[in-house]
C-alpha cells in the first residue's frame, strides 16, 4: 500500500468515525428531547387535572367535557382504540370499527367521570423515566393520597413518541398492571367466546352504556 493510499484510508476511516459519532450524538439529543417531551406531557396533564378537579362548581356534564378535551389532547386515542381489540381490529368492518371507537370512548369517559372527584386528594411524584426501543417511553412515579386513606401506588405512563409526531400517552400501568393490556384481554376474550364475532363486543358495550347512569 502506497503512502497516498494509506493517507486516503486514514482520511476515510476518520470521516466514517466522525459521521458515526455525529449520528450517535444526534440520536442521543433526539432521544433526550423525546424523554423531556414525554415527562413534560405527563406534568402538563397532571397540572390540568389538578386545576380542574379543584373546581367545586362543575357538573357531571362539565366533567365529561373537560375529560373529553384532555383525552383528545394528551392520549393517542386512535392507537389505544386499535390496540384494545388486538387482532380483531382487522376482522371488523369499517362501520364496526367506527361504531366501536365511538362506544369505547363513551364508556371510558363515563367511568373516568365517576372517579373524577377522587383526584382531589391525589398527587403525583415522578421517579424514573426509561426508554423502551425507539418509540416507547415509560414515565414512572408514585401516586400519593394526601388524605392518607390509600397507601402509595406505583404508576407508569407509557408514552409513544413516533418520529415527526407529538408524544402522546398510550397506556397507564398501575402496580405492574397495564390498563390497556387488561382491556385488550377482556375485549378479545369476549369476541373469542362469541365465535370471533366483533359485533358481540359492540352489543356488550351498548348494553354497558345503557346500564351506566343516565346523563
Amino acid at each position: 500500500m502506497t503512502h497516498l493510499q494509506k493517507t486516503l484510508l486514514k482520511v476515510k476511516t476518520t470521516t466514517c468515525a466522525a459521521i458515526m459519532l455525529l449520528a450517535c450524538a444526534g440520536g442521543t439529543v433526539f432521544a433526550n428531547d423525546r424523554v423531556s417531551e414525554a415527562e413534560n406531557l405527563v406534568k402538563a396533564l397532571i397540572t390540568e387535572l389538578e386545576q380542574t378537579s379543584l373546581r367545586d362548581n362543575m357538573s357531571d356534564k362539565d366533567n365529561k367535557q373537560v375529560l373529553d378535551q384532555l383525552v383528545e389532547s394528551y392520549f393517542d386515542v386512535d392507537a389505544i382504540t386499535r390496540f384494545s381489540v388486538g387482532r380483531y381490529w382487522r376482522v371488523a368492518t369499517e362501520s364496526e370499527q367506527s361504531e366501536y371507537a365511538k362506544l369505547f370512548r363513551f364508556v371510558l369517559l363515563n367511568q373516568a367521570s365517576e372517579q373524577f372527584h377522587k383526584l382531589r386528594d391525589l398527587e403525583f411524584k415522578p421517579t424514573t423515566t426509561n426508554t423502551k426501543g425507539d418509540k416507547i417511553i415509560l414515565v414512572g412515579g408514585i401516586i400519593h393520597d394526601k388524605s392518607g386513606e390509600f397507601p402509595d401506588v406505583e404508576i407508569f405512563w407509557r408514552i409513544v413518541a413516533q418520529p415527526n409526531k407529538p408524544a402522546k400517552i398510550f397506556d397507564i400501568e398501575v402496580e405492574n398492571i397495564s390498563m390497556l393490556k387488561t382491556q385488550q384481554d377482556e375485549n378479545t376474550t369476549l369476541i373469542r367466546r362469541n365465535a370471533g364475532r366483533f359485533g358481540a363486543l359492540i352489543e356488550a358495550l351498548q348494553e354497558q352504556l345503557k346500564n351506566q347512569q343516565p346523563n
Binding site: Q111, E175, N176, I177, S178, K181, T182, D185, E186, N187, T189, L190, R193, L201, A204, L205, Q208
Partner: peptide, 24 residues
Amino acid sequence: DVKNNSLDAYARARSAYYQHRDKL
C-alpha cells in the same frame, strides 16, 4: 370496579393476575 364495570370480570381478573405475577 372490576366487578361492576367490566364487560367480562373473569377475563379482567385473569389478565390482571398474569400481569402482576409476571412482574413478580
